[in-house]
């Protein structure tokens, strides 16, 4: 199918739109899609990153012949070949497995940036909970004070707590 915009290149991007009360699809080549601003949007908008990955990968694989396209994500079973073909990751763990390989083509979008901005709730909780070392130091100080003041009941309790933490971290 030819691109509906330039009429010369093969259409690889298929954009769903609503026109006159009906759902339709327009078909564009990669260049026209990018030129018209459809590249790099949520693909709900119609853009498919796989075009871009495929445009980049032949070159990339020649440069790095060791890339194993059949490698699979252990969590969801998605293969690297599938990621390149569809432009989609299969699960969150795919990022750990494939991201470095995709980096050369993705750097076109993201550069060398790392995330700044909002953090997931699990991250905030981890950062806010006091570190184990701090807790241990505090408990040991309390233990020393308890022994010094001959409060042996409290000292025994504190020792149990310290043992539990140290046992857990070893």
């Amino acid at each position: 199918m030819l691109c509906q915009n330039c009429g010369s290149a093969e259409a690889t991007t298929h954009i769903k739109r609503i026109v006159n009360g009906e759902a339709t699809e327009i078909h564009l080549c990669y260049n026209c899609a990018e030129h018209l601003g459809y590249a790099n949007m949520f693909s709900g908008f119609g853009f498919n990153i796989s075009n871009m990955l495929q445009n980049f990968f032949p070159e990339f694989s020649r440069a790095l012949p060791t890339v194993d396209r059949s490698e699979r994500c252990p969590t969801c079973g998605t293969s690297f070949e599938e990621v390149v073909r569809t432009g989609m990751m299969g699960c969150a763990d795919c990022y750990g497995v494939f991201y470095d390989k995709l980096k050369p083509s993705l750097s076109r979008i993201h550069g060398r940036a790392t995330h700044v901005g909002k953090s997931g709730v699990a991250q905030i909780t981890a950062a806010e909970s006091p570190k184990l070392e701090d807790t241990l130091t505090k408990l040991k100080d309390e233990l020393k004070e308890a022994v010094d003041t001959q409060n042996f009941e409290l000292a025994a309790k504190l020792r149990d707590e310290i043992n539990a933490i140290e046992g857990g971290t070893k």
Binding site: N40, F42, S43, I49, G87, M88, M89, A92, Y95, Y99, L102, L106, I109, H110, A113, T114, H115, G117, K118, S119, G120, V121, A122, Q123
Partner: peptide
């Protein structure tokens, strides 16, 4: 609890939307 990575931010199906 949403999928999140310290370096890559919120993880999305399409790698163009991460962060």
């Amino acid at each position: 609890e949403f999928a999140f990575d310290k370096k890559l931010g919120y993880l999305t199906q399409c790698p163009t939307n991460i962060g």
